[in-house]
């Protein structure tokens, strides 16, 4: 499922292209995944995840879609499975991903291209 699919599934609700809206339905769906990510505020939990990823995931009762998204390091799939970026950022940190890496992965660009696009906004500043 893509984000666009996820957004259009917000029946009767406003959608914004390419922009996840973390509403009640997403919050319900994503609770286990976000709870796992919240646990990573504790360094010991980050170490435990690194030591035994599958075992750690099992403790939080992630859905199969959430497990697969984490296994694949697939940010869009994590969001489609209810992940919220404020919490996913902690998991991304464990994977050594910066916000530019995460942005590039979601937009299908190389990291260099993603950064170049951000810098290109400076042309509008003149």
């Amino acid at each position: 499922m893509t984000i666009a699919d996820n957004c259009t599934s917000r029946a009767g609700h406003r959608t914004i292209a390419g922009t996840p809206i973390f509403d009640g339905a997403a919050a319900n769906q994503g609770y286990a995944l976000n709870a796992m990510c919240f646990s990573f505020n504790d360094a010991a939990n980050r170490d435990a995840f690194r030591a035994d990823e599958e075992g750690y995931i099992a403790r939080f009762h992630l859905s199969e879609a959430q497990r697969e998204a984490v296994r694949q390091r697939d940010i869009l799939a994590m969001i489609a499975a209810g992940g919220n970026i404020y919490y996913l950022a902690k998991l991304a940190g464990i994977f050594g991903l910066s916000v530019q890496d995460v942005g590039a992965a979601q937009t299908g660009m190389s990291v260099e291209q993603f950064k170049a696009n951000l810098l290109a906004y400076q042309e509008q500043l003149a």
Binding site: I3, A4, I16, A17, G18, T19, P20, I75, L76, I79, I85, L88, A89, V99, V102, G103, Q106, T107, F114, N117, L118, Y121
Partner: peptide, 9 residues
């Protein structure tokens, strides 16, 4: 930060 529109300014 999130979604296909990540990087939007």
């Amino acid at each position: 930060l999130d979604g296909e529109r990540a990087g939007f300014i």
